[in-house]
Design a binder for these strands. Structure first.
Lengths: 344, 344
DNA sequence: CTGAAAGCGCTTACAG
DNA sequence: CTGAAAGCGCTTACAG
């Protein structure tokens, strides 16, 4: 905290009234019932002394901090930071401030963050839950902490969430590939227990099944987050030149896409002629690739704003559970040939 | 704020002592001078009741919130978010929490953010100051608010800052181009009054002058942030095909680089044969370009951590001014031919 | 129309 | 070794 600032008391003394009255005037309470001249005088002095209310004191009394806690995976990555940006924006518009932290996909770090944020008396939490944090989320529920899960949720827990319809979104991407004539389609995804990731795999397999394309085990590459680059290199090599080579690859995250594209470029596989590619999430830099990738565009802005809105509702009216599934848009670019059939 | 949590009073009542004693024990004050058994009992009950201190109350009393305010340009962009990430990390290690907001390069928004953060009683501020915010920064100084400027600073203001040595860094990049045989070198930068940007232009012109290369006005393209894409398109077109075409371009920001590269790609100008390119800042996605750009790598991690450290020092010991200029590293990649002379 | 008073949950000299 | 008490800067019934 900084300096010695003017307090209600200072104003009260200067004007010669009680602090109560100053508080009422400055908060526009008891509207008509205050002497106009006194009110005017109070406002004038507050202005002169450059009065700034101490939110800490206010919070202690009112039990509201107008602060939201945000747990992202890693604020340094694209998806997290643009999400944070929209959340901040929406919160700001409603006079809330956001405190954030990165879990780094580590449940212990996530727990520590949640505890820190709660000790700071945030009014509610927005959480991108890492793998292994289900019990922590269940705890929050038990304590009746208002919160909204974003991006990831747990099907066994009846909580507020805003997430992608991962099944339909990936299914849509794979159907687009099939419609464009591709039949040997690989999926590069993360090895994780998180529901939203397994949904992506399910959408992939459903699209194949819909079209009676038998799934080959070697088409599914599950990458370990802690060993990303080597495993992606290996996966792409196998998909491109292994026993069951593919003619198309779907990536289920931005990081996987960028690193995968690098490998594809390294192997001099021609996109889309030898290999089609579908990426995940938006990045300005996709356009630097010679064949800008077709990608699933998550409605990040809507996710951020909606989650914030739902949280604020949960904070004020502590009843209803809201679960929102949004679909990604498929943005078709040069990395996939245009669809042959349009009746899908 | 959430739920009714256990307070010091609850513990005091359960154990049958005063709240003062509970406070002392839980804060490890008055070390030896407390009855071991009583202390043990207090800790046990605190544990059982899952006591979590109310930081708000603590802050009101101690006048410390252990919270830092961060103003970035736009948390959604790469430089800001990776800076935020390291600041968060360093702050966390010292038990501070970070509240943030984006100025969007708008001085009015910056002022509003600063006020909000101060009302929330942050212990200090980390600020990426937008164009036109100099008077706000001077105000902070007058009020003795501890703060550190990051990335940008005002030469007329004697404040703490951590910034790039923009002059030397860009000069180094241009010298590399000259050493590699390029002589007609353009600079694509922002049109702004911010000192750090004009320093980049100064570094560019100094490198030309050092080598007796006469500067041509049409080589310097100053882009308006609010009309970015059209102006970049126009600038690249002119640099590539205008009256005084260049054989090399230096970009002074990540956004400029990516958009510039897109235009270069669109015009089918071959890099580095027809045109060399030097970019600014690091992005994974640079590697998607067929000729991964040589770039100036800002020491973002060091900037973030150092700024945080300096701020914490300013908070505790309110004297010394620290000004740190760090140099960027030139990472040479395929977008520039290797240097011909090495004796520079 | 206005003020005295209690209290939010802590910390910390002070007294014993 | 321990407790009563004041106070951080606010808000808000309550009384007049």
């Amino acid at each position: 905290m900084i300096g010695k600032k003017t307090s209600l008391k200072d104003i009260a003394q200067a004007v010669g009234v009680s602090t109560a009255l100053v508080s009422y005037v400055l908060n526009n309470k008891k509207e008509g019932r205050i002497n106009k001249d006194v009110a005017k005088q109070i406002r004038k002095v507050a202005q002169e002394l450059n009065y700034q209310p101490n939110q800490i004191a206010k919070s202690l009394k009112t039990n509201k901090t107008f602060t939201l806690g945000l747990v992202v995976a890693d604020i340094g990555n694209q998806f997290s930071s643009s999400l944070a940006r929209y959340i901040e924006d929406e919160a700001d518009a409603r006079n809330y401030t956001v405190i954030y932290g990165s879990s780094e996909e580590n449940p212990a770090k996530c727990q520590k963050l949640i505890t820190t944020l709660l000790n700071r008396q945030v009014d509610g939490l927005l959480i991108c839950a890492p793998d292994g944090s289900e019990s922590q989320i269940a705890d929050l529920q038990r304590q009746h902490v208002p919160f909204v899960l974003i991006d990831r949720y747990f099907p066994n827990l009846k909580t507020n969430y805003v997430a992608l319809d991962n099944f339909q979104s990936v299914r849509k991407a794979v159907l687009h590939l099939i419609d464009s004539g591709y039949r040997r389609i690989g999926l590069v995804t993360f090895k994780t227990g998180l529901f939203h990731i397994s949904e992506r795999t399910r959408g992939y397999r459903a699209a194949l099944a819909d079209n009676a394309i038998p799934f080959k085990k070697s088409w599914l590459k599950e990458i370990n987050r802690d060993n990303l680059k080597p495993e992606i290199a290996k996966a792409i090599l196998e998909l491109a030149t292994g026993k069951n080579p593919v003619d198309a690859i779907v990536f289920t995250s931005n990081t996987l896409s960028i690193n995968g594209l690098k490998e594809i470029k390294k192997l001099s596989v021609r996109v889309p002629d030898e290999m089609a590619v579908v990426s995940f999430d938006e990045t300005e830099a996709y356009d630097l690739f010679y064949a800008p990738p077709t990608y699933l565009k998550q409605p990040v802005e809507e996710m951020g704003r909606l989650a914030t809105t739902i949280l604020l509702e949960a904070i004020t009216a502590n009843n209803r559970i809201t679960q929102a599934s949004l679909e990604a848009t498929l943005v078709v670019q040069a990395s996939t040939k245009p669809a042959v059939f349009t009746d899908k």
